[in-house]
Design a protein around this nucleic acid. Sequence first.
DNA 1: TAATTATATCTTGAATTCAAGATAAATTTC
DNA 2: GAAATTTATCTTGAATTCAAGATATAATTA
Lengths: 167, 167
Amino acid sequence: MADKKMDAVDLIVDQWKNERPELNSELMGIPGRIKRSSALVQHKLEKTFAEYGLNYWEFDVLATLRRAGSLYSLAPTALFSTLMVTSGTMTHRLKGLEKRGLIARTANPEDARSMLVELTEEGFQLIDKAVTAHTENLERILSPLTEDEQQQLDNALRKILSLLEDA
Amino acid sequence: MADKKMDAVDLIVDQWKNERPELNSELMGIPGRIKRSSALVQHKLEKTFAEYGLNYWEFDVLATLRRAGSLYSLAPTALFSTLMVTSGTMTHRLKGLEKRGLIARTANPEDARSMLVELTEEGFQLIDKAVTAHTENLERILSPLTEDEQQQLDNALRKILSLLEDA
DNA sequence: TAATTATATCTTGAATTCAAGATAAATTTC
DNA sequence: GAAATTTATCTTGAATTCAAGATATAATTA
């Protein structure tokens, strides 16, 4: 069997094997690689977002509104649930995006307790350009993997994600 | 072919397909699942760390010192490089752990510019107990996957991680 | 209808993080 | 050996986040 290249996580697992041989330290590989991959890939994506004057969360909020479809508006509750942040965080995010003129707030005709957040024309134009660049960036990042490798990775991630989402 | 269960990322990809059919939005699946899995798994791990009075980063720092082996000491530079945080963040972390008596700082006999950070006896005992519980927690989390599925996931993650680490 | 409970959002304060720059010691160059 | 550069760490200030609680409206129950 061909040796695989050691990565940062292999080193961690090896250290634990030396220090605590009775532990099943191999188990640390999967969560370790998920965390590290996540940090590295987010860093790469941020570079493209920055070309459009957006950081990660700003892209996330605008993209969530954009892909919701016309009228490109959602209640804050829908936004923070989707994006896995607290309501306080969302308030803060919306304040910043509103000040920049990328979103606007309107009253919700169906529920006076809630507001609706909508993309402005400027916000719409910006996120549409940014998401085009984003998918081109993803093509670059993933292109070294074969079609088959991408499929295998996606299938495997699907299993662990559904496991994590259920529990 | 059997239909797979839709997850949160499938919904996002589907929305983009409706709104921007010309984009290759399938590409969003892999980074989306990595990010979401990472957030969910970290949340699960934190629960175990909390049983030992530790949050994620406190566990990380103590574990890094522990697995380095005797004398369980490293320079701050080694710590923040390994843990992918800035030096300022590490200063802050070390201050907190020192105050709690889990680490101590000593002069570095080999380089007067740097300090050495070492586990105290108390820190050593705590992280050893916590890491035992941590691996038991990982067993619980991963046990619904077959041995084979775990291997496939790990292989696939290895490929993407080495890709991301190289670039 | 009045009181209670649930829902939606915002406010506040503390914790965590980073970027940029300050400080201090070691190393290299002249 | 003095000056310049590099290395290691810490300090500061701003940004981001969350938890807890405040506020306001809606829905439910008595």
